[in-house]
Write a protein that binds this DNA or RNA. Structure first.
Lengths: 142, 142
DNA sequence: TGTGCAGTCTGTAGCAACTACAGGGTCAAG
DNA sequence: CTTGACCCTGTAGTTGCTACAGACTGCACA
């Protein structure tokens, strides 16, 4: 891990650059309560430190793993408020894992059908397009 | 296939019921140009027939296969305007197939990590939660 | 001291693909 | 002739951002 604790007085652009987060997304996460409002300079500029960076990295990593913002809020609450959050955090992740697996199953079904119709279309010289015919079929043909 | 051609004078609710489409979605698809505006009764009520139903089924089936509304518009244009649309339709599907495969790969990466952390959490009695620790890690650990 | 430019601020609008009202009109049955 | 179930329109909400516009600040350079 990089040094989070030592950094102070970062502006938004530097925080974004250091974390790879989009500049506007930082402000968005603050607005929806995923990140704390940082202190401001006299001119009203946001001033971040290592703790903000660490928290933003947590959010970004959770997003990479497909957690929704609501789920991330829940995980952060567990981080902040509980001594022993492991069981509840595991449950959040288990529910999400089930979602991910369901999505994979959906996409695999799509993939099978698409692969078949693209193959059936061959070089695209058929008078009746198998893809278009498939789309006009009943849906339980999936 | 069910009988599409014979049906006339359907109202929106019946079309929705017959196709399994949400009532409001029918109107939405008309608004965004995926379905033609149907004729109206003197009172201004939409009046659908079998051709509308067939077209809506096409859209719904394409949505089930994950095509975007833009892709579906393109496919419908090929259906309507071309004698031999197979090559172009196949290309639309091939691009979409690549998207689907990329999404599957993304989700499988997520699944691997989630499965591992949930397993590491065990019964949730650990003092340090492996899930939360993982989320505080650098992102290239994925 | 001025001036230019890059940075920051706010609020708002846009994207996909719906979904769900509110507030009104219509129509058939009882 | 009223009741209830349908229909109509427009608009707002959802998720997770992203991209402005228009105003302000702060620093380097002449």
């Amino acid at each position: 891990m990089r040094d989070h604790a030592g950094v102070t007085g970062m502006q938004r652009a530097e925080l974004a650059r250091r974390t790879g987060c989009n500049l506007e997304t930082v402000r968005y996460y603050e607005k929806v309560g995923l990140l704390p409002e940082p202190p401001r300079t006299t001119a009203g500029y946001r001033s971040y430190d290592g703790a903000h960076e660490r928290r933003l990295r947590f959010v970004l990593r959770a997003r990479e793993l497909g957690f929704s913002l609501d789920e991330i809020r829940e995980l952060l609450r567990l981080v902040d408020e509980r001594d022993r959050p492991c069981a509840e955090a595991r449950d959040v992740a288990a529910v999400h894992l089930a979602d991910v697996r369901a999505k994979i199953a959906d996409l695999k079904r799509m993939e099978r059908v698409l692969k078949d119709v693209v193959a059936q279309c061959g070089d695209g010289t058929l008078p009746e397009c198998p893809l278009i015919e498939t789309l006009f079929q009943e849906r339980n043909a999936i």
